[in-house]
């Protein structure tokens, strides 16, 4: 039941996360910042714009991105296998990158290509994270993970940090926002969307927020307070890093993910597995 409600309201939760994030970001820069509901004002404004598009295929891919991101979240909440949900997430990347590739705009195509490099960077970490959760709690089932008595974070500290390192890549936050790179390629895959179609992409990003932070929440296991604390701490940490670092190029992102994050995750799982024997 909670799962269904979470799924239905996930765009709203994601919007709130995004609003809070903007405020927190502003406060960190000692600004006042927009109201917390700002993302929703943006939402209504974008709905009210005259729709324009490059071509129908591109516009439809924006909508498909939103739908498949939402569907992936539904699979995460309503299904009982974490791994499947992670693979569903790739469908939304497919829709986004296909749409971005389909227009003859250099920025869009570069952005789509970088989006794929993002995928190559974070996806192995996320899969290893799921496997680590399985190893720690004995199940891929979310309800089992959320009712396990010992929190996975205590057995998977390195893996957790690897996952936190991957979050900026998943959510396009600095220093790993090469796909969006607002000053360089002006939003990358999003650039050609406008009005209601951009609205779909914008909302899809909110759902990705919820998706990622829910995965963080799972590290708390049955201890929901710990889970909530992890989410808040991760959120603040990611925002702080976002504010205080400059963008790295994609090779460095790839190297960081492959040389540091993946070995970290593998070592954690390795030692946990051997210790359990």
């Amino acid at each position: 039941m909670i799962g269904l409600l979470m799924t239905i309201f996930s765009p709203i939760i994601g919007g709130l996360i995004s609003g809070v994030e903007r405020v927190v970001k502003a406060r960190m820069q000692s600004r006042v910042g927009p109201p917390i509901l700002q993302p929703f004002y943006d939402f209504f404004k974008l709905m009210d714009k005259r729709p324009i598009m490059i071509h129908s295929f591109h516009a439809s891919m924006g909508v498909m991105y939103f739908i498949s991101a939402w569907f992936a979240f539904a699979v995460l909440m309503l299904g009982n296998d974490l791994l499947i949900a992670v693979f569903f997430h790739v469908i939304s990347i497919l829709a986004l990158s296909m749409g971005a590739f389909s227009v003859r705009s250099s920025y869009s195509i570069i952005g789509a290509m970088r989006e794929l490099i993002h995928l190559a960077s974070y996806e192995p970490v996320v899969i290893l994270c799921v496997v680590g959760l399985y190893l720690s709690t004995g199940s891929f089932d979310i309800s089992v993970i959320l009712s396990s008595s010992n929190a996975p974070i205590f057995t998977l500290p390195l893996l957790f940090f690897a996952f936190v390192g991957a979050i900026p890549m998943m959510l396009h936050k600095s220093p790993f926002d090469v796909a969006e790179a607002h000053q360089e390629i002006i939003g990358g895959p999003d650039i050609e969307y406008s009005g209601p179609f951009y609205e779909a992409v914008y909302t899809g990003r909110w759902i990705e927020n919820v998706f990622v932070y829910f995965l963080v929440f799972l590290f708390g296991g049955g201890n929901f307070i710990l889970g909530a604390f992890l989410v808040v701490a991760t959120f603040l940490l990611v925002t702080l890093i976002d504010n205080s670092t400059a963008r790295l190029d994609y090779q460095r992102m790839l190297k960081f993910a492959w040389v540091i994050l993946i070995p970290m995750a593998v070592f954690n799982i390795f030692f946990l597995a051997l210790g359990g024997n």
């Binding site: 005259r50 324009i52 598009m53 227009v103 705009s105 920025y107």
Partner: peptide
């Protein structure tokens, strides 16, 4: 009924 514009460049 959706106008098509040129890609941003």
């Amino acid at each position: 009924n959706v106008e098509q514009v040129h890609p941003y460049n």
